[in-house]
């Protein structure tokens, strides 16, 4: 076999030009490697499957459910689990199965959309701040510090009170408070990446700043960001549940898991299933996401794991 690393090999023994693209060996990127490691992690895979199952159940389930989430039937108030109503009904005779599914849509949706919003703000902001450095960095980071100092729960509550309980606003508000941490993490990463030789090499090629950020810096930050994001989703879902519990989140008759838990808690001595069932789904989802986040951290940064 011709060893390509041996310069004593005469050039004609290397394949001749133009090369056949089919001969190009596929490489395995760090992403592919991480995916491989994730698949080896049994807990993470189970979590992923369960989570996808719950998501499917929430988003596709309602199409197969004969009841709407706001359909009241006073004739079947507060029924236990039955064949007609698998999860029973609540005090107003609404089918709990339908409500859990619709609630899941809102809760999971809020978690992901708000995280996406916070990610896009945080990554860009942090990357610019870290890459620019100097005065710009100081000013941008002091702004983050100031925003950090604001009691964000009160901030959201104020927003809700002033602008009314609007679900889009809820997404935006939740995302807007979460981007701060991401911005800080990204900035720290970028600061250390900036000193890496491959970034210096890109600078000495005369590449534009935006290209360096997009091609050389951000892809190398993404691993950390993904891990953080998977752990942000459950924390936003909790925040939403908390707001709903206070009555500031999703407006009835719309439901989120937070709203359902709140309703259930009010009647828990009488109809305990109205508390237990949504709580179960909510906890299971948070559990899965946290496990997945852990698994992703091990997969994306193999040095930190025991392997």
């Amino acid at each position: 076999m011709v060893n390509p690393c041996n310069l004593n090999v005469p050039e004609e023994r290397l394949p001749s030009l133009p090369i056949d693209l089919n001969q190009v060996e596929g490489g395995s990127s760090l992403w592919a490697d991480a995916w491989y490691r994730l698949r080896k992690n049994r807990f993470a895979v189970i979590s992923l499957v369960v989570f996808l199952g719950i998501t499917l159940f929430s988003y596709v389930g309602p199409f197969f459910c004969p009841y709407g989430f706001e359909e009241m039937d006073l004739a079947t108030r507060a029924q236990g689990l039955s064949l007609a109503h698998w999860f029973g009904t609540d005090g107003l005779g609404r089918d709990l199965l339908a409500r859990v599914m619709y609630g899941g849509r809102i809760s999971i949706g809020v978690g992901f959309i708000a995280t996406a919003i916070s990610l896009s703000i945080g990554v860009v902001y942090g990357a610019i701040s870290g890459y620019a450095g100097g005065k710009i960095d100081s000013v941008m980071m002091r702004l983050v510090d100031i925003l950090y100092a604001m009691p964000y729960a009160i901030f959201i509550i104020l927003l809700m009170v002033i602008f009314g309980r609007n679900i889009v606003l809820l997404f935006v508000a939740l995302g807007a408070v979460q981007w701060l941490t991401i911005a800080r993490i990204v900035r720290g990463q970028v600061l250390s990446l900036k000193k890496q030789e491959f970034v210096e090499a890109a600078v000495s090629l005369g590449l534009s700043d935006s290209r360096i950020i997009l091609r050389h810096v951000i892809p190398n930050v993404l691993g950390v960001v993904i891990v953080y994001a998977t752990l942000t989703v459950p924390s936003i879902m909790l925040l939403e549940a908390f707001l709903s519990f206070l009555g500031l989140g999703v407006q009835p008759p719309m439901a989120s898991w937070g709203v359902l838990i709140k309703d259930g808690a009010e009647n828990m001595t009488v109809y305990p299933w109205t508390l237990l069932i949504p709580s179960f789904f909510f906890s299971l989802t948070l559990f899965c996401l946290n496990f997945l986040g852990d698994g992703l951290r091990d997969a994306l940064d193999p040095r930190s794991s025991k392997d």
């Binding site: 390509p4 690393c5 090369i19 190009v24 490489g27």
Partner: peptide, 18 residues
């Protein structure tokens, strides 16, 4: 790219590797 890789003694078929 393939010429360059040959110049420095690497097999161009490895160009898609990381």
């Amino acid at each position: 790219v393939s010429t360059l890789m040959k110049t420095i003694g690497l097999n161009p078929s490895q160009m898609k590797k990381y």
